[in-house]
Simulated scan of single mutants.
Amino acid sequence: MQTASRIQKNPIFSSPDLGLLYLRLTGALLLFYVHGLPKVLHYSTELQHIEDPFNMGRAFSLWFAIFAEVFCPILIALGVLTRLAALPVIGLLAVAMLAVHPDWSIAEGQFGWLLLIVFGAIALAGPGRYSIDAQRGRA
């Protein structure tokens, strides 16, 4: 019981900033690994299968997806321009859920909706003090 009491009194363990760090790192890693990395590794195949909901060209759609799912998660994980970097991710996920897959039930689209919640929370809350943004006074 004494150990639990010490942990609760230690500000690093009860810090919302630690929660934001965890949210940034895990959300960014998940998005990068599940969606971004396969697009880069299998670019030609992805180019043939990616949806183009606004008729801007498959190449543009894929490059925007790579930007939002590879480069933005790296910035978010590091805590660099965090709120700004979350916006393309939110935009991409919103298009995917509302324009590309509007017929999906909540259960079918739960991964996308959860990612929207994660990156929406990051955009609203910011990176927290364990970030490069905070070290530069921009959190």
Rank of each mutant, 00 (worst) to 15 (best):
M1T: 05
Q2W: 14
R6N: 06
I7V: 11
Q8V: 11
P11I: 01
P11D: 05
P11G: 01
F13R: 03
S14V: 04
P16N: 07
P16C: 01
D17K: 06
D17N: 11
L18Q: 09
G19K: 08
L20K: 03
L20D: 02
L21G: 04
Y22M: 12
Y22V: 12
T26M: 11
G27R: 01
L31Q: 00
F32K: 06
Y33F: 06
Y33I: 00
L37W: 13
L37R: 11
H42L: 06
H42S: 12
H42W: 01
H42C: 05
H49S: 13
H49L: 14
I50L: 01
D52F: 06
N55I: 04
N55C: 09
G57S: 11
S61M: 05
W63R: 07
W63P: 02
W63N: 07
F64M: 08
A65S: 02
A65E: 00
A68K: 00
A68Y: 00
F71A: 05
P73D: 04
L75F: 06
I76E: 00
I76T: 10
V80M: 14
V80K: 10
T82A: 02
A85C: 12
A85H: 04
A86F: 02
L87Y: 03
I90R: 00
A96H: 10
M97H: 14
A99V: 15
H101M: 04
H101K: 13
P102Q: 08
D103V: 10
I106L: 13
Q110W: 08
F111Y: 10
G112D: 07
G112L: 13
G112Y: 14
W113V: 13
W113R: 14
F119P: 10
I122S: 05
A125W: 15
P127Y: 03
Y130G: 15
S131P: 07
R136G: 05
G137Y: 10
R138S: 13
A139I: 02
